[in-house]
Amino acid sequence: MKANILLIIIFLLTACSCEKEILSYSKGDIKIEIETGEQWLHDFHLFLGISKKNSPQFAVWIEDTAGNYISTVFVTEKTATEGWIANKGNRRKEALPYWCHQRGVVYDDGLLLPTKENPLPDGITGASPKADKELQISITDFTEPMVIKAEFNHSVDFNDFFPENAQEGDDNYSGGEMGSGQPAIVYAVTIYPNQQQAYLKLIGHSSIDGSDGMVYPDLEKLTTSKSIIKQISTVIIK
């Protein structure tokens, strides 16, 4: 019996140390590295004072330099599939409004958010990671400059300027009790085929209540949301 247990433990430990998945890059591929900041994980209240640490909803996509949307590279599952739990029908349009408007796909209910019935493709939909994330992209015709954009948002990320008790119609209304709090933040960088490395810059925040697709450059009222991300870099493999 003891020998059996010992063998089981040895084999399980061997199996646990499974090989690491490594992205293999070719010349011209673009590596996007998202480094998480201090506020990447945010407390989400469940019940009886119990909270869980949530990672943010986010989307990464590419556009041309004229601001035309080309393709989504990655989007978190809840946004991509209407995968919210106990949301009482709230589609959370304030989560990633800039990405939604840039993408411009209108669904049956008039919102720009993917639905359970029409989610985004599986390959670019994933769990919101608990730590840094790396994406490898290869663009078929990368001869002209392109813009990489990313939008991040926590729900219930309230502060003094975007409080929980703001009422619909107020300038700082972000979706109510289960809303966004601080609005989504947007990063962008233009990359060139002959470039090697670039960093996405914080260019502003999205609509507070998700009602438009603008980027607002005023960042003074944002507090913790500016620390969701430490850094996002792109490297073009030579």
Partner: peptide, 9 residues
């Protein structure tokens, strides 16, 4: 137009 791969845990 695009090939994307990513890893996660």
């Amino acid at each position: 137009i695009l090939y994307v791969s990513s890893t996660d845990k």
